[in-house]
Design a protein around this nucleic acid. Structure first.
Lengths: 134, 134
DNA sequence: TATGCACCCTATAGCAGCTATAGGGTCAAG
DNA sequence: CTTGACCCTATAGCTGCTATAGGGTGCATA
């Protein structure tokens, strides 16, 4: 009947996160430890839901847990400049772009290798040849 | 004076691989355990060098250790069809393409978010806003 | 001969970011 | 009063290495 209290399972369903992951985030310092019920169950409130949603969204955007921790800390200082937030986001974007470039180069090489396969025996396989030294 | 025997350090230098990684590959079943010297040092030969080079090349192309193990096994059956090799390579290529697509979508979102930053206070920060629920 | 140094050995723990297990306790419904 | 869904902690596992600790080997030099 406690309408503004959420169990860990409620929170998991609402944010599409596994229960174990939520407990892991707590241990990792991404979520504050909530109050406990008489039976030692975690009792979450709206603020926890907001915070977990923030974490999930940042994770979906590929930020590392370290970056998420930083972003959370900065987000709490409402009167400070958002310069540091901008830096983190730009750094992350640069890394994403770098990863894309790496994967595209790799994909190009792979496509070339795969395209040469003559579907014969292993002895004449161009893929194996491409992987072999000399 | 043993000219066709390589120490683990030699192999490491030649293939640009860390010594620990070579030992790890042996434990992981990617490299056969080589003969040992009187002093219990690993004594590698040309065949090990070739095999490690193959592994490195496959890893550079992003194949998982499981896939590399499979490729090694298949590469040894010279008279079999190379169909399975082709399947592994194509599967991997598909995964690379999928990752690129994911990262591009993510990069697009990030670029939009970063572009909106007005460089004011955290309270008005569009990045934080974009990460926050509601 | 001693000693220093680069190299080698094993075993084990650590990294990210979870996920899965074991072995229990809680709580509401039937 | 038992069943079943949920919750708890602690710990181990995953990938692909990398890094330590605590030793042994082998060669050159003082």
């Amino acid at each position: 009947m406690d309408h503004d209290v959420l169990s860990i399972g409620d929170l998991a369903r609402t944010t599409d996160t596994k229960v174990e992951t939520i407990r892991y985030y707590e241990r990792a310092g991404l979520l504050p430890a909530p109050a406990r019920t008489a039976g030692n169950y975690r009792a979450y409130r709206a603020e926890h839901l907001a915070r977990l949603s923030f974490v999930r969204r940042a994770r979906d955007l590929g930020f590392s847990l370290d970056h998420v921790r930083e972003l959370l800390r900065l987000a709490d200082q409402k009167d400070q400049s958002c310069a540091e937030i901008d830096v983190i986001a730009r750094l992350h974007l640069a890394e994403v772009d770098r990863k894309i470039a790496d994967l595209m180069a790799l994909g190009g090489e792979l496509r070339q290798i795969v395209g040469q396969c003559g579907h014969g025996t292993v002895a004449e396989c161009r893929i194996i040849e491409a992987l072999s030294p000399n």
